[in-house]
């Protein structure tokens, strides 16, 4: 067995990297999609729920009130560009490209966006939006969970990583 395979504290996940959250408060690589939430520039109550499927690059964008995004008629909107940009900041370009199955290793967010756009993906229905939005709410709920001063010995298995400040 390698040291990694026989290590209790082996690192499995690369750490997230810091990014500003004001424009895109939530982005994730999950459910076979790059998906997330983009804050509206004009209406503080409104957010856009956007997603791009890995492999097919089928995309969807709608508001949290289930109205279709005006910019996403037949082609990627600005919200999807913002999503790709922030995902690359948070996860690194390699991980995002690998997940979406875009051959853009060593390139940047704009390259990933352009390659996907160039494949002329189709617009998916907004079925995923409700699920993505509920995952965003679940994510936000972590802000309000109580702290505890009882020790959690299990977190000994999760050392910090030196990658971010």
């Amino acid at each position: 067995m390698s040291d990694w395979e026989s290590a209790s504290a082996a690192r499995v996940l690369p750490p997230a990297r810091p990014r500003k959250l004001s424009k895109v408060p939530f982005v994730e690589l999950a459910d076979g999609r790059l998906q997330g939430v983009v804050s509206s520039g004009s209406d503080i109550e409104r957010v856009y729920v956007s997603s791009v499927a890995a492999g097919s690059y089928d995309f969807a964008c709608s508001t949290n009130n289930n109205r279709p995004c005006g910019g996403a008629r037949g082609a990627f909107c600005n919200h999807i560009l913002a999503l790709v940009t922030e995902a690359v900041l948070q996860y690194g370009v390699e991980r995002v490209a690998r997940y979406l199955r875009v051959d853009a290793a060593g390139m940047d967010a704009q390259a990933i966006y352009s390659i996907m756009m160039g494949a002329r993906p189709s617009q998916a229905d907004s079925a995923a939006a409700a699920q993505v939005f509920s995952r965003f709410l679940r994510h936000l709920a972590y802000v309000e969970l109580p702290a505890t001063t009882a020790p959690l010995p299990e977190l000994q298995w999760f050392p910090p990583t030196r990658v971010v400040v």
Binding site: L21, Q90, Y142, V143, A147, T148, T149, L155
Partner: peptide, 9 residues
Amino acid sequence: SVSAPKPDT
């Protein structure tokens, strides 16, 4: 000790 759940960002 002190611990808390947190968003990944």
